[in-house]
Amino acid sequence: MDNGDIACDGYHKYKEDVKLMAETGLRAFRFSISWSRLILNGRGSINPKGLQFYKNFIQELVRHGIEPHVTLYHYDHPQYLEDDYGGWINRRIIKDFTAYADVCFREFGRYVKFWTTINEANIFTIGGYNDGNSPPGRCSFPGRNCLLGNSSTETYIVGHNLLLAHASVSRLFKQKYKDIQGGSVGFSLYAFDFTPSTSSKDDEIATQRANDFYLGWMLEPVIYGHYPDAMKKTVGSRLPVFSEEESEQVKGSSDFIETIHYLTASVTKNEMNPSLSRITDFNSDLGVSINISSLKDKYVGSPWAMEGILEYIKQRYGNPQSTFLRMVK
Rank of each mutant, 00 (worst) to 15 (best):
K174W: 09
I123Q: 11
K113E: 03
L276R: 05
Y75G: 00
P303K: 07
I292M: 07
S151L: 14
G225C: 05
L38V: 15
V62K: 11
K176G: 00
S289C: 07
S284M: 12
G65T: 04
I39T: 08
Y262W: 11
F108P: 02
G44T: 02
N119L: 04
Y190P: 04
W35Q: 03
G287M: 04
S277V: 11
H69G: 01
L26C: 15
V70N: 05
M218V: 10
Y190K: 00
Y73K: 07
V103S: 06
P136E: 01
G287C: 06
D76G: 02
K314A: 15
V112K: 00
T195G: 01
Y73M: 06
E16V: 04
E244M: 07
N90A: 08
H160A: 08
G127W: 00
D131L: 15
K15C: 12
R106D: 14
K314N: 13
P78N: 09
R138H: 03
V222M: 07
D212G: 05
S188T: 04
Y11N: 08
C139W: 08
K298F: 11
M218Q: 11
A305C: 15
V169D: 02
S134H: 12
V18P: 11
A191M: 13
A121V: 15
T116R: 05
E220A: 07
Y129C: 07
A210L: 11
L215Y: 14
Q181M: 08
C104W: 10
A265E: 05
L310D: 09
F31G: 04
G308A: 09
H226M: 03
S322K: 15
E220P: 05
P78D: 08
Y14W: 08
L51K: 12
P142W: 06
G4V: 05
D96M: 14
S45A: 13
R138Q: 08
P320W: 07
N56K: 03
N3Y: 11
Y227N: 05
V103W: 02
L286G: 05
I126G: 02
I58G: 01
A167H: 01
N3R: 08
S284L: 11
F97I: 02
D5E: 09
A101E: 12
Y75F: 14
S168F: 03
V328E: 15
Q175L: 14
S243L: 01
T117F: 11
R144E: 09
N319R: 09
T323Y: 00
S253W: 13
P320I: 10
T24Q: 08
M306F: 13
R63G: 13
S200T: 15
L310V: 14
S277M: 15
H261I: 03
N273Q: 02
Q52P: 09
I123H: 03
F242P: 05
Y224R: 01
N283D: 05
Y75A: 00
E107H: 06
G236S: 05
Y312K: 01
I292P: 02
Y214P: 02
F187L: 14
G149D: 09
G44E: 05
Q315W: 10
G149E: 07
S275I: 09
N130T: 09
L276D: 06
